[in-house]
Design a protein around this nucleic acid. Structure first.
Lengths: 220, 220
DNA sequence: GGCCGGTGTTCAAAAGTTGTGAACACGCTC
DNA sequence: GAGCGTGTTCACAACTTTTGAACACCGGCC
């Protein structure tokens, strides 16, 4: 069973977008549009992680956070438009495990959610074709029962591919996945890592070149 | 159903941190911020174990301990900043099953909780490869029948590894496990402790370096 | 065919990460 | 304060990964 994520967010656009991205990343999602409903759903479903907007109508986000902490120690990713350092600190004090200021890139949130799930030991190995499994907790990759020795960049690329199979990644996006905030490295570098990864995965690697666009991992 | 731990602690930081660590170790947690609420929650939830701060506002920790003893025979881990031998003795007299002076390594508390649960008939002993055993109550480590003399930091690291074998710990997480709330120490410090630990464990230490990520303890 | 842009391959230099020994700092006890 | 155990920092060596550049290749197009 995939981990369940509870999103507590009053703006339907944001909640919907986030939800779609999380589902594409193989997670299950429940939505609550206000704090009270959020707590109800939390008790009912006991999700593995909560994404919580700190600016909520009615019962405020910080109050929800406090209540969540009393109910257990579920990992919480706090979203907020507040730029105030003060509020941010208050969020951390109350035990938000990560904090994402709006506006954000959905992929960034997905990535942080995965990281937190990894840290809490929740989550399952990602799967690909040909008996390929990638476990981000132990950071191990296997293919058909054999262990694959991947370098950090290869691991990062394969994670991106397995998180979003069949999606075309531009070289720029893949550089992002490699953690290059500033794009001062040549995009051709990606090609080299792709080549190394393909070599280690063997002939049936599943990494397709999309001429003029980038690369795509085909699941089947 | 996982064992439920009740934490009675007025400082939110400590309670939150402890709670999260316990949760990650697969335990369920409820928090009370004062003694009165602690007793209420105890009656309500009947937890398998209580972590009790002896210095509480209002109803004092020792009074709570006495009340708990009247209510049943739940195992109690006492936390306190008091260095007085006298208070420590009074805690034991009243039946605290274990006693952890502040400041403590969060993972050490987790480890002691696990050990106490084991002694109450829940759970299993902490074991590693090559006949390695770690008893957090007596604070002793053995390997193949031989006693190993570990320093506090090495003990904390090994506890983390044995609690979560096969999981990759970043240096930052390991610093957490060492109780460094503020990350003012260099992450390279971890490397040195790792080296010392490896040396004491011998050639088959099982602590793998995960290049670019951290360290992992391999069970087999 | 010859040109061209995009991609694959190779490799050595550059950049980054980790291991190790030794020195230093800190807190404790005597 | 000296002595001790412990934790931290530093400097350097050893090692691994990443990068940039050079060249080969492949297909489409004029």
């Amino acid at each position: 069973m995939q981990p369940l994520i509870l999103i507590v967010e009053d703006e339907p656009d944001i909640a919907g977008t986030l939800g779609r991205y999380l589902e594409r990343a193989g997670l299950r999602v429940v939505l609550a549009h206000d704090g009270r409903r959020g707590l109800e759903l939390f008790v009912e479903h006991r999700p593995s992680l909560v994404i919580l907007d700190l600016m909520l109508p009615g019962l405020g986000g910080l109050e929800v956070l406090r209540s969540l902490r009393l109910l257990g120690s579920v990992p919480v990713v706090a979203l907020t438009a507040l730029v105030s350092q003060n509020d941010r600190l208050r969020g951390f004090e109350l035990g938000a495990d990560d904090y994402v200021p709006k506006p954000f890139y959905p992929l960034e949130v997905v990535s942080r959610v995965q990281a937190l799930l990894r840290r809490s030991g929740v989550g399952r190995p990602l799967e690909g074709r040909g008996g390929l499994t990638l476990d981000s907790v132990s950071r191990r990759v296997q293919q058909g029962g054999h262990h694959l020795e991947l370098r950090p960049s290869e691991f990062a690329l394969l994670s991106a591919f397995l998180l979003f199979p069949d999606r075309v990644f531009s070289r720029s996006e893949l550089l992002d996945a490699l953690g290059h905030e500033t794009h001062d490295t040549l995009e051709r570098t990606v090609d080299v890592h792709i080549r190394n990864l393909r070599q280690k995965l063997g002939p049936d690697h599943g990494i397709c070149t999309v001429f003029g666009s980038g690369y795509r991992y085909e699941r089947a």
